[in-house]
């Protein structure tokens, strides 16, 4: 498992946090993800790249059962979280989503809530009974983890929508962190952001890696190269290649991967 980039938590034995086995996903008639199998290691960032419509977003949405939220969408196969299949009949998707958080392409602060209410939304909406002090400390911890605390600590009561786009996205990260997930999925989190905000999010990813397992979907190959430990390349619903990021970008084994990363299509 030691690929030379073990990082801070090298003393912990690397484990596969999330294992995908023969995953197929459909939208009504469309077969969007075709028999994908791969595994995501704990405390690592994995990037999924590929051209538009290759199924990378669909794949990541299958990992916390968000795919089935779309009418007519369904998925088959197995996704094991710590060895337990999240697609088992007796598993509640709601529970899965609390352990596997998600950040979306567009920043989505709840417009009716203040900044602090947004951060605590995952707790309050789930009916978790906590004291004011506990709540405040969760808000502060999450905002600090999302590198937003210093910018908003004086205006926690202001509406979430009053922040800039990049701040809103970090607010969404904080909101996802507040429920203490084990895995964070990010679906093109920077595509709506300017370069400076993008850089902040990328720094943030590298900081969060020590505590979380992160899967990021991106159409930006530089971003994948900069942030991830492993990279998966998808094309027309198939997983073409999955390996260490350095290897994928310098020495891909598959012709399609090479064509894509050298910019011949996509």
């Amino acid at each position: 498992m030691d690929d030379g980039r073990g990082g801070k938590s090298a003393k912990i034995i690397m484990a596969d946090k999330l294992v995908v086995k023969n995953l197929n996903a459909y939208f009504s008639q469309i077969h969007a993800v075709r028999d994908v199998s791969l595994e995501f290691e704990e405390n690592r960032i994995a990037a999924i790249i590929g051209p538009s419509g290759c199924g990378k977003s669909t794949l990541v949405r299958c990992l916390n059962r968000m795919h089935e939220v779309v009418p007519g969408a369904r998925a088959t196969g197995e996704v094991l979280l710590d060895g337990n299949n999240i697609y088992d009949d007796d598993v509640d998707p709601v529970q899965v989503r609390r352990r596997i958080g998600m950040v979306f392409q567009k920043p989505t602060p709840f417009p009716t809530m203040s900044i602090e209410d947004n951060v605590a939304a995952g707790l309050t909406l789930n009916g978790v009974q906590i004291s004011r002090a506990e709540r405040d400390s969760v808000v502060e911890r999450s905002l600090r983890q999302a590198a937003l605390w210093d910018e908003v600590k004086d205006r926690l009561r202001r509406p979430g929508a009053s922040l800039s786009g990049g701040q809103q996205q970090r607010l969404c990260v904080a909101r996802a962190l507040a429920v203490q997930p084990e895995v964070i999925l990010m679906d093109e989190p920077c595509s709506a952001l300017d370069p400076i905000s993008t850089a902040r999010i990328e720094e943030l990813l590298l900081e969060l890696k020590s505590a979380y397992t992160i899967v990021i979907v991106t159409h930006n190959m530089q971003q994948a190269a900069r942030t991830s430990d492993k990279t998966a390349f998808m094309y027309t619903g198939n997983l073409v290649e999955y390996g260490a990021t350095k290897q994928i970008f310098t020495n891909p084994t598959r012709r399609e991967t090479e064509d894509y990363i050298t910019g011949r299509f996509g």
Binding site: N64, M102, T108, G122, V179
Partner: peptide, 28 residues
């Protein structure tokens, strides 16, 4: 926006709670 609904579901909020506390609340 449907994204709000998804964001709430992704936080592990049950569907009924999402519909009432996020979607209907926003449309209130």
């Amino acid at each position: 926006p449907p994204e709000l609904r998804e964001a709430s579901l992704a936080l592990g909020v049950p569907n009924w709670r999402t519909t009432l506390s996020v979607v209907a609340r926003t449309a209130l």
